[in-house]
Amino acid sequence: MEHLLHLDRTLDELDPPRWTLPDSGVTRLMERVHALRRVPLRELGPGDLRMLVTQQVALPYVVPLAVRLLLEEPLLDASFYEGDLLLETVRLPDAVWAVLPDLGVRLSAVVAALPEAAVAELPSGAAEQFGRFVAGFGARR
């Protein structure tokens, strides 16, 4: 995964411009996202990655980290339920995968291999999301 460079650096360093401190009165979510931009990449946990993916923050740096985890454990429970990081990652816009096509192909193979029983236990619509994601990479293999 050649995209996993500079793990000792932060998103603020890698994804300019640096974000200023959030204004008072912002939501806890936005406070947390701002704080995560100042954490070295190697210290970001699954829940942190899920939050950054969901908020679509610095995706060229965050998606490779998320995919690395998902290739090892696709149904990882990052924050709320088994498979939450995977589901948020496959929901990303096609433009993200256009920049990271090799990761998309690798992740689509993992998604395609998921047991039906495991997918059935995920939130409603997950199977359809996975199907769309895998279909989007069918021609790229």
Rank of each mutant, 00 (worst) to 15 (best):
P17K: 09
L44K: 04
L122K: 10
R28A: 15
H3W: 14
R38D: 11
A95S: 15
H3E: 15
M30T: 00
P40M: 06
A139V: 13
W19P: 05
A35M: 12
L41C: 01
A120L: 09
T20M: 00
T20F: 00
E88S: 12
D8Q: 14
L76N: 06
Q56T: 09
T89I: 07
L52W: 10
H3S: 13
L14R: 03
L103G: 09
H6L: 08
L5D: 14
L44M: 08
L122H: 08
D12T: 01
F133Q: 01
L69V: 06
L70F: 01
V99P: 01
M1P: 08
V39S: 03
A98Q: 15
L52N: 05
V63W: 08
G136E: 00
G131K: 12
L71E: 12
R140L: 14
M51Y: 04
L65P: 04
L29N: 13
D23M: 07
D84S: 08
L70T: 03
L5F: 12
S24M: 00
D12F: 03
H3D: 11
R42S: 12
P93I: 01
A98F: 02
R141T: 03
G138W: 12
A127I: 00
E88H: 14
V39P: 07
A112M: 00
L52V: 07
L76Y: 12
E82P: 15
P64E: 08
G104I: 02
L100I: 10
R32N: 11
Q55I: 00
R91H: 08
G136W: 00
A112P: 01
R38C: 09
P40A: 04
Y61T: 00
G83V: 07
A98G: 04
L4D: 04
M1S: 13
G104Q: 04
S124L: 13
A112R: 15
E82Y: 14
L122R: 04
R91Q: 10
P60V: 08
L11I: 04
A117Q: 15
D48Y: 01
E116T: 01
A126W: 07
V62M: 07
A139T: 13
A118V: 05
L86H: 10
E13I: 02
D12S: 11
P74D: 11
L71S: 03
G138R: 15
E72M: 06
L21E: 15
L122I: 10
R37Y: 03
G131T: 11
A120N: 07
E13K: 02
R132W: 13
A118N: 06
M51L: 15
R106S: 14
P40C: 05
E2I: 06
V99G: 03
G25P: 08
L36C: 10
R106N: 04
